[in-house]
């Protein structure tokens, strides 16, 4: 048996990880994002993407959507730890791939392309609600909304059309039907 050189225990088996989308309603006050981000970094959790904005101007409530990955135990801890923070009102948690939830990300792509190429690009983006935001003879800015994997693929495809800049948001989420998070 090898000798342990540590006064701490040896790590046990790590379970299978899952991707979750966690939605947090918080008071929009100074430092609140640092509290959330600090909780994730301090406890070794992972933030894959993050989207924040105030959704209630009167009560100053912000809605934060966090995409994270972890074992079921870690995901449960994230939920419970978030609920302990004083400015947090409620927390909703969804597994990626749950049927009743809608997810969307937004991306802006800038390409150096002539008008001929620009038409091809529009075709390529057709499925993803493309909006042309800016257009010159040499350049082209297009906005799409889609799922993350779709945007990943699109970005790859656009490379050969002279993609020079990409800007993406984190994922936002909403339930289907009349139901809301609670």
């Amino acid at each position: 048996m090898p000798k342990s050189k540590s006064a701490y225990s040896i790590p046990g088996k790590i379970g299978k990880t899952e991707r979750h989308i966690i939605v947090v309603w918080v008071d929009n006050e100074a430092g609140v994002l640092a509290r959330i981000a600090g909780l994730f970094s301090g406890r070794g959790y992972n933030i894959e993407s993050l989207a924040v904005a105030e959704v209630d101007k009167k009560k100053h409530i912000s809605r934060i959507t966090i995409v994270t990955e972890g074992t079921p135990q870690v995901i449960e801890q994230i939920n419970l730890q978030l609920k302990k923070l004083v400015p947090v009102h409620k927390v909703a948690d969804f597994k990626r791939g749950e049927k009743d939830i809608l997810f969307r990300e937004l991306a802006l792509f800038k390409m150096l392309a002539n008008s001929k190429k620009q038409e091809k690009i529009k075709k390529l983006c057709k499925k993803f609600n493309p909006v042309v935001l800016d257009k010159t003879k040499k350049s082209f800015v297009i906005q799409v909304t889609a799922l993350r994997a779709e945007i990943d693929k699109l970005a790859l495809d656009l490379k050969r059309f002279g993609l020079i800049s990409t800007s993406r948001t984190g994922s936002v989420a909403m339930t289907k039907g009349a139901k809301i998070f609670n």
Partner: peptide, 29 residues
């Protein structure tokens, strides 16, 4: 706590466990 459990995988393997705590995040951590 880790000073109590020692190796987590082999901690009290045959027992049913009840946990009373005021802090929900302490349970199942």
């Amino acid at each position: 706590d880790d000073r109590i459990t020692g190796k987590v995988d082999e901690f009290s393997p045959k027992s049913t466990k009840i946990h009373v705590d005021i802090d929900p995040s302490s349970i199942g951590k």
